[in-house]
Design a protein around this nucleic acid. Sequence first.
RNA 1: GCCCCUGUAGCUCAAUUGGACAGAGCAAUGGACUUCUAAUCCAUAGGUUCCGCGUUCGAAUCGCGGCAGGGGCGCCA
Length: 600
Amino acid sequence: MFSIELDAATEKLLALLEANQYPLPGSVDWTPIPFRSQWGFGTAVCFQVAAAEARSGKQVHVPSRAKEISEHLSRALDPLEGFETIEAANGYINLYINKSVYSNRVVNTVLENATEFGRGEPKDAIVMVEYAQPNTHHSFHIGHARTAILGEALARLVSFGGYPTIRASYPGDIGLGVITCIWAYDRFFKGQEPDGVHERGQWLAKIYTEATRLLTPREDETEEERAQREAYDAERRALYKAWDAGEPAVRELWQETRQWSLDELDAILQILGIEIDVFFFESEVDEPSKRIVDELIEQGIAEDERPEGPVIVKIDEKLGLDQEQYRTAVILRSDGTTLYSTKDLALAKVKFEDYDVDRSIYVVDVRQSLHFQQVFKILELWGFPQAKDCFHLAYGFVTLPEGAMSSRAGNVVLFMDVLEEAERRVQDVIAEKNPDLPGKERDRVVRQVGLGALQYSMLSVDNNKDIVFNWDDALSFEGQSAPYIQNAHVRASSILKRAGEIPEESGFEYEMDPTEIELIDKISQFPSTVQRAAEDYKPLLMATYAYELARTFHLFYHAARVIQADDPAVRASRIRLTAAAKQTLANALALLGIQAPAAM
RNA sequence: GCCCCUGUAGCUCAAUUGGACAGAGCAAUGGACUUCUAAUCCAUAGGUUCCGCGUUCGAAUCGCGGCAGGGGCGCCA
């Protein structure tokens, strides 16, 4: 936001260095000054200059020499267009900006751009984000919610950062797990069907758990039980074969139950505000994916060990690595059936060729790190330049305090159950804090706040760390949480509502409160935070930023009066600042997929 | 045996990518609602950034070596 002024300062600084025959630094970086009683930008170039002198043989003590240089240069720099004061501090050169100028520029920029404030320059590279890919015939649990929430936030950030963005999902709709579920349904529950999209999906998951129990060997099982289990297992295998052969009755059974799961998924994605552009179904990718294996064999990348062994790619050998790192990937079973790797390779080709994807991001759990490293390396060997821009956004597990969640074992915490509990708790808080909130609006706020709390608990932890799910932590409404941020937005809204019209101009030509300066400073960091989060694929940066912005606003709220300010000029400026803060809070929350209520 | 990730306050996590005193929340104690919404704020307390060596003017951050925890390593996904 001050790049023009800072570039000019850099130019003058470099000219001074040259004129005084100081060694030139590689680059001049300006960073915000940490102590913001009055704020500006500082640079550490004098340390670099002093260090360069020391290296060239001069007998200097670097820190004190840096101090000396900074004092000299800061005097010589004065005056500088756009900066009020220039000073040397601890070897740094600090440029302080006129508060009024800076404040007006930030606030005006936000209010002019509104919902577009912070959007990055349009870019060419097409980004595809693949996320929210649960298996069908399971129910959507809190672990699945992590990929959905994380992936959506990432997609929003990348898109807002300026990249054309495609949202993709890759549901696992076939496999032994799916067949197991269908088998049990067909054998024991056929014809039953609970009402309600979520009820039906969850019921299917229970059938799966039950089927797994029936098919898992127990240590103390009797001869009779063992025979029964083996008979069940034979039925299941026969069913899989029948599916594979395309037997109409089995396909129909599969289609019907699959749709129940997809309906539930659809309902949940809608709740989360997710609109997937492309669905790649595993069942549809399966058959065509076999073709790429021949291509890889022909090109000498893969080795065919059939019929004794599978088709493999010796990646380390192909890359000439002497230490094992990517190892050997199996890309087709010896019986010719596909593997996960077969399908991911084929799918990547489709993404590159049919969707013109330049950067392909996979939001998938951390256990598949090696798998993706292998896939990316094979794509590279295969000759796809996009391979270097493939990125596995690995996220840690969501576990329960007592251990891992497992759909098979049935000890899962369902997303819908958590949401329901969240909303119940929000109801209680509203009943206590804001009982006058009208019923219709209240229902909407309950959803926004309850869901927001849940979303934020998934976004405020670094993606590569595990989350131990705990009801009270996940549904905290105090401190670093979505409701805290939403509450800042609500307070700003409340002030603006009472203020009426937003004044056309602000002056900020008075002794500003330190919290006011902090707030403006924080707002000004929003665009660069968007860019960093989008470039580094780190939703966490935005989650942290949103909290810090809210915190800064709460501090301002307590320290400075807005509509109660005595001086009309102060009042006008602060109303505009409040409007800018509200807008930035809303924009930041939107990027996280969290809604910003006007009252709560 | 090899590869990847993690290690920061009692607990959960940050730290503008190598910068100025390492910051928040939760939990604890005390305080602020006749005042723009107290889902807030203020105060007190809490640190050998796992350990060691190195690079650098400067290291939580980079390199090497350890230690601890998690994940993964040819026909699961």
